[in-house]
């Protein structure tokens, strides 16, 4: 029983940062129609922002996280301007270009920090106990930050003019541009937000995962599973699927092993692709 409860708490932590990553990926796909293969590397860059600023240069942890968010967001804008905008009518081209970008980011990380794991001391050693389950403050912080950020994003998308423009572009780019919504402006903002979410996830979890330049691979696999299960166009679906996947993965890892958990996750995605490619929570197939 204790183990079950502890695993559930662990799964909640996993769900929180996975949701940030997946929502970012869906955001980019929704507006630009491009699957960003470099999304895992954006997470990695966010993590290395914390390695550099917090672990090496001794800036406060929160400042390093904020810097990671902004920096990776800017990287996202660079990607939009240099690759996704010229390739707007060529989604496959955009995807392949993002694979090229992934290699560049990986190499830069190796050049800057070496191939070995970056060690990041936790910002706090404190632990909370929730009905017998241990939750480090470091993990609790990730959970709270994720909830806060996603709530802020949700409000932003519902209330602001940009939010409406984003949703309009995601639904029908042509109609949106007829309404006088600037596609470039909207894409830039979507790319900033989408990338920044991956970056902040990396920054927040850096002390917990010991990043390497190659950590993006497992991240992108996870993100793909989540967005396929949730339905590629759906932000809410991505959050729900992140929770679902995090629980499945964490429980299988705890009670079997990590490789089996990965196989189960991929098989879950595969099954969704075959049976219901629009995702479990995506819009129903239209005629």
């Amino acid at each position: 029983m204790d183990l079950l409860w502890q695993t559930a708490v662990n799964a909640t932590y996993a769900a929180s940062y996975m949701a940030l990553i997946a929502v970012g990926l869906v955001m980019i796909f929704g507006v630009m129609g491009v699957i960003n293969f470099a999304h895992g590397e954006l997470y990695m860059v966010g993590a290395y922002c914390v390695v550099f600023l917090y672990a090496q240069e001794n800036f406060p942890f929160l400042l390093a996280v904020a810097a990671g968010l902004v920096f990776v967001g800017i990287v996202g804008i660079v990607m939009e301007r240099t690759m996704f905008r010229p390739l707007r009518d060529n989604p496959l081209g955009g995807l392949i270009a993002s694979i090229g970008f992934l290699l560049i980011l990986q190499t830069l990380a190796v050049l800057g920090f070496g191939r070995r794991m970056g060690h990041v001391p936790p910002a706090t050693q404190d632990k909370a106990e929730i009905f017998g389950a241990v939750l480090t403050h470091q993990r609790l912080f990730v959970i709270l930050a994720a909830i806060l950020l996603l709530a802020a994003l949700w409000t932003f998308l519902r209330r602001s003019k940009f939010g409406r423009a984003l949703r309009a572009c995601a639904q029908d780019a042509e109609a949106a541009s007829l309404q006088g919504i600037s596609m470039n402006q909207t894409a830039r903002i979507a790319m900033f937000i989408g990338a920044a979410l991956a970056g902040v996830a990396g920054a927040l979890t850096a002390p917990l995962v010991s990043p390497t330049p190659y950590i993006g691979h497992s991240i992108i696999v996870t993100a793909f599973i989540i967005i396929i299960v949730g339905g590629v166009g759906s932000l809410e679906g991505a959050v729900i699927a992140a929770v679902l996947y995090a629980f499945v993965h964490t429980f299988v890892t705890t009670f079997f092993d990590g490789v089996i958990a990965n196989i189960v996750g991929l098989a879950l995605m595969f099954a969704v692709l075959v049976v219901r490619p629009t995702g479990l929570f995506g819009a129903r197939e239209r005629a």
Binding site: M83, L87, G93, A97, G100, F101, L102, L103, I104, T107
Partner: peptide, 12 residues
């Protein structure tokens, strides 16, 4: 890195 740059440039 060079492979990545070549890939992007050739797609573009």
């Amino acid at each position: 890195l060079i492979y990545g740059a070549i890939l992007i440039l050739s797609v573009l």
